[in-house]
Nucleic acid binder design. Structure first.
Lengths: 197, 197
DNA sequence: CGTCTATTTGAATGTACTCAAAAGCGGTGG
DNA sequence: CCACCGCTTTTGAGTACATTCAAATAGACG
């Protein structure tokens, strides 16, 4: 199979749990490699999300489209990140999110059924995802608090310093859709910030 | 000990996992009942959060205070809800959140050390909290998406229909601090909504 | 009944959006 | 190598959403 992706995902997991070779083999047997072209969908709105994806190359985004056709981005995922539609994964109902690739990308897919089997057969994985969820919660809570308490300019600065790799490779329209502002306004924010320096 | 609280927490847990009497006894032995007067702190900003609290009576809130002295509410927790400072629980560092009681309240406290011990000794509890985290993530993601994509009036309506029990017992200033708007503006929103009906 | 707090109202201001148009920036083909 | 195309970013004027500050009103409670 594809060695670089496996190396990265095993390293990602080894940050929180330690696996023996049998556990590694079992885990790896559950993963489906998947290639995505630019703009290709991993999940479309209204579909049930069956997979959690680990990105080992490229960049994906999860987002929803409102009644006026505007996109609002929940998450970017570059190398070494996980992405999926938690709502749909948990409820097994059709979700509101779309997931697609901003660049040519490669992911490893873990089916929800396989994930749950994994939790039963190797409880360490339940620990791994529990820890991943805890960290993810912390970041979401931080972002939420920033959103309800700070003006857009400040949110942009925090985002830029927190995720310089993402700023560097993602178009401004996408950043604006993540921050919850229009691209035009983000452009003005950047001008103002430059002027102040 | 206090039977009503225990009944409620065991029922809460039984929604996702089943326990035998030995496991119940062990779990219960780790819980510390705690009473809070109105306005009393469970956690103060800058302290390490050691406990996850299960509310079985009353109403708590977690919030941060910005540099201008304004409060921003992350979560309300009434009967049958869990509350804590995930950031501080996970990192074991001093956190940014304050947790206090909006009403005279009763909680059951689970120390982070005991929680981690529990995960080792009764792995079912790791499952329980993994599921709790998944559901909590879904709600946070929903709220975040609403915040970046909807005007305040709509966010208020959604909040009111999603949490009627909270609207009924929490002052408007607190709702405003949760929605990310000023109390004055919330007052105007309510007036407008009434006029439209 | 008075005191304390929460809510409402209003005018002025600031933050962010809309719409339309111009400018910049790769790529691709001639 | 340049000209053109499609896409992203910038600019600007007008508007809408939300805040600030100050003051009036309304509720809750001893």
């Amino acid at each position: 199979m594809n060695t670089p992706g496996l190396e990265l995902i095993l390293q990602n997991i080894s940050r929180f749990i330690e696996l023996n070779s049998g556990e590694i083999d079992f885990f790896v047997s559950l993963l489906k490699p998947h290639h995505l072209r630019r703009r290709q969908f991993l999940l479309q709105e209204g579909m049930v999300c069956n997979y959690t994806a680990f990105v080992y190359n490229g960049c994906l985004r999860s987002y929803s489209v409102d009644s006026n056709g505007f996109e609002h981005i929940l998450q970017f995922a570059i190398e070494d990140w996980w992405i999926g539609d938690m709502y749909s994964l948990v409820t097994r109902q059709p979700g509101f999110l779309t997931i697609d690739a901003l660049e040519e990308s490669d992911v490893l897919l873990l089916h929800r059924d396989d994930q749950l089997r994994l939790f039963n057969e190797v409880p360490k994985f339940e620990r791994f995802f529990r820890i991943l969820l805890e960290k993810s919660m912390v970041m979401h809570q931080l972002r939420l608090m920033e959103n309800i308490s700070m003006p857009a300019a400040q949110r942009y600065q925090i985002f830029a310093s927190r995720y310089p790799q993402i700023i560097a490779r993602v178009p401004q329209t996408q950043i604006a859709a993540y921050l919850g502002i229009t691209p035009e306004f983000l452009s003005k924010i950047k001008k103002d910030l430059l002027r102040k320096k």
